[in-house]
Design a protein around this nucleic acid. Structure first.
Length: 328
DNA sequence: ATGGTTTTTACTGCGTC
DNA sequence: GACGCGGTAAAAACCAT
């Protein structure tokens, strides 16, 4: 269980100290409003305006994690970071075998000879680096989906690493690169504590939820990378930001979630649902209601789920603080 | 496949503005 | 009347066995 995400915030931010040993909480100022920003669960958010500054933390450290010893040795390097997002500088190209131009007309003798030469070379390049071909497509796909989901570059790097490993192990067999790429990104996002739900992935990927999950489990078991389940804590910063919650609300929701998890690992309850309910419950506590429908929209859950979950949160809250919260 | 758990869908009535 | 919400039944989805 990850201990990192359990930092509790019961003091105003001005009293919090920043120490180097605490890597989950560091401070900076927000470019928008000059307020304090905190990094929680991997996302930097401004406590004043709620702005999420995903990309500020890129390159502060190694942009990927080592999954095992060999990976660790590979990641050490000298010089500028090489990007895993590029592979062949765009050399892999397809040249059709038909001697036709784009309009379907036949080509002249000269052009034909030219094309033949091109094909030959292209084919040599291609077959020599057949692996790279799939890579190009997959990396492009990772990039596309990642930006659609607002995931930072570091996550794409991680996803690329995962994909490369999976690819090397031959896990692409019987699976589309599409799903392999999506699954890699899904794993990377979770690993970096910036989880996106399977639904969110499936919405922008061309892969349906089911095969996405199947590929994901396949990849992670084969690669032996155990990615812990996403927790509500990890979803919360993003949801708070999208709902433009005040810092007070955000902290309250976080406390509720922390308490909830301390009470015991919830079995089967979805992390997004818990986060959604925590936001709603925080609204009740702080007398600042957020309507269930709105929460449901951004959290990808339903008001019903929120309704089912939030009484638990309030109950635990009452237990811990002795404060009863008016339900309505 | 099966059964238990959770979420979703769809519909209800109630209070409030 | 529209809205937010609680409640519920039934269906769907999920997961472990």
């Amino acid at each position: 269980m990850s201990q990192q995400s359990y930092t509790t915030y019961n003091k105003p931010s001005s009293e919090r100290t920043t120490s180097d040993s605490d890597d989950t909480t560091e401070r900076n100022t927000c470019p928008e409003c000059n307020g304090n920003t905190t990094v929680t669960g991997g996302e930097r958010i401004c406590s004043d305006c709620g702005l999420v500054l995903n990309d500020t933390q890129i390159d502060h450290g190694p942009e990927w994690r080592a999954f095992n010893a060999s990976e660790r040795s590979k990641k050490s390097r000298v010089g500028a970071p090489s990007t895993n997002l590029m592979h062949d500088k765009g050399l892999s190209t397809n040249i059709d075998w038909k001697d036709r131009d784009a309009r379907g007309n036949s080509l002249s003798q000269k052009k034909r000879r030219q094309m033949k030469r091109l094909r030959t070379w292209n084919e040599r390049l291609r077959t020599r680096s057949s692996k790279e071909r799939g890579l190009k497509f997959a990396l492009g796909e990772i990039d596309r989906i990642a930006s659609a989901l607002g995931l930072p570059k570091s996550t794409r790097e991680t996803a690329s690493v995962i994909f490369r490993q999976a690819h090397k192990k031959g896990l692409a067999q019987g699976r589309s690169y599409e799903s392999l790429a999506s699954a890699s990104l899904y794993a990377a996002a979770r690993q970096e504590q910036l989880p996106r739900s399977l639904d969110e992935l499936a919405a922008v990927s061309r892969v349906d939820r089911r095969s996405l999950q199947r590929t994901y489990t396949h990849v992670t078991t084969e690669l032996g990378i155990a990615v812990p389940n996403a927790t509500a804590q990890q979803y919360l910063p993003r949801f708070s930001s999208e709902l433009e919650l005040s810092d007070e609300m955000h902290q309250q929701a976080r406390e509720l979630i922390d308490m909830y998890y301390e009470h015991g690992e919830p079995s089967g309850k979805t992390a997004t649902g818990i986060a959604a309910a925590a936001i709603y419950a925080a609204g009740l506590i702080k007398d600042n209601r957020i309507i269930q429908d709105d929460i449901g929209d951004v959290t990808d859950t339903t008001p019903v789920t929120i309704r089912n979950r939030y009484p638990d949160l309030l109950e635990i809250h009452a237990e811990q603080t002795g404060e009863e919260v008016p339900s309505a």
